[in-house]
Amino acid sequence: MHKSLLVTAGVIGLAFLMTTAVWSADQHDSAVDLGRSATDEEIRAWDIDVAPDGQGLPPGHGTVAQGAQIYAMRCAGCHGPTGREGPQNVLVGGHKSLQTVKPLKTIGSYWPYATTVYDYLRRAMPANAPQSLTPNELYALVAWLLYQNGIIAENVELDHDSLPRVEMPNRNGFRLDPRPDVR
């Protein structure tokens, strides 16, 4: 009798100790004193993404005409004189081609947000010198690409205010993953 009581007490005690051990391991995970606070300056330097609502767009502006010059110098070698020729990704055209047997997915026919064009050019283009374009050059390039795709007029100047308000033709062309869709 006494013996079984002792065993019971022991089991309860052990369970308590194990609970405590697990609890302190969890506490330990988030209480580790590692890393340091990021300064505002660091965050500004690294925070290069641009959201569909325009958050992240820097000050600056650019016109279609300025974009044409920059495109010819920095982009045409890979994407062709008008953005239709390649050899790298075709950037212009493909309007209303998505339901056909030969869909042509370009900035004009497929991309849902104009802000994504700015974001992508800023972080990745030109491929041989990424992150070398200034905000004004980027606004101008985006303007030229949108103009070539018939989305904005030739005299439009883009900046952090007007770019997010550009409506892309395929803005509503996407739906959330419905899989499993095949039975």
Binding site: L98, Q99, T116
Partner: peptide, 17 residues
């Protein structure tokens, strides 16, 4: 958006698949 989205026959695309 431009890539890693799955274009369906009706011209719409699955996103975040």
């Amino acid at each position: 958006t431009a890539t890693y989205t799955d274009l369906m026959p009706d011209g719409t695309a699955y996103q975040f698949s």
